Amino acid sequence: MNHFADIRHDLETYDGQWSCQGFWVMIVYRFGRWRYTIKSPILRKPFSLIYKLLYKTVQILTGIELPCEVPVGKNFRIDHFGDIIISGYARFGDNCIIRNGVTVGLKNIEEKAAPSIGNNVNIGTGAKLLGNITIGDNVDIGANAVVITSIPDNSLAVGIPAKIIPKKTPATT
């Protein structure tokens, strides 16, 4: 895997705007992933220290917590900065967008499982996705929704707790 190509692709995802805080987070994320490619633990240690310093700095500057242990797909986009917390146990598919105030994490501390999010998922401002759940492909999660159950493909989730509404397709309208 070419990490520099991933960073170039991330920059394209952010329309070439270096000033986007989400892009800063992705650079640190990519650096954290890259350091795991260094086989020797002794050689990896200084890079791990640098990663931890960069991670904390970008977390303080942006309010975004995205550990490098989280697998993210292509075109992962953090659309607005601030108050975003993603558990190291989460996973994201391709073409996911998250906005400010989003939490993707554990339902309780004893259960070390966070949501697994499919492709083409759009997560609205303030949404909370918690626990060992699966979010299907082509799902929209509304602003401030609290999602604690799995969501099937081609759905919309809104409310507290989230109510799941199947999306209408052109054939069904």
Rank of each mutant, 00 (worst) to 15 (best):
N95I: 12
V146I: 15
G131S: 09
V121Q: 08
I151L: 15
N138Q: 04
V139G: 04
A127C: 11
V147L: 08
H80Q: 12
L106C: 08
G101L: 05
I117H: 06
F92R: 02
G124Q: 13
D137N: 14
N108S: 13
N108E: 14
I98V: 13
S116M: 08
I85A: 01
N138H: 11
N132S: 13
S150M: 10
G93T: 06
G88R: 03
S116H: 10
I86V: 14
V139M: 07
G136L: 01
E111D: 14
Y89R: 05
E111P: 04
L106P: 07
S150P: 07
G105N: 05
S87G: 06
G131D: 08
G101K: 04
K107E: 14
C96K: 01
V104G: 05
R91M: 06
A145W: 09
V146F: 08
T149G: 11
I85C: 04
P115K: 04
I109D: 11
G105A: 08
G118E: 08
A145T: 12
L129T: 03
N100L: 10
V146W: 11
I133N: 02
A157C: 04
R91H: 06
L129Q: 07
S87N: 06
D153I: 03
K107H: 13
A143L: 12
A113D: 10
R99H: 12
D94P: 02
I151W: 03
I141P: 06
C96M: 09
H80F: 04
D137Y: 01
S155R: 00
R91I: 00
F81G: 02
E111I: 15
G124H: 12
V102C: 09
I133M: 05
A157S: 05
V102I: 11
T134I: 06
G126R: 01
G101I: 10
N119C: 14
L106H: 11
V121E: 09
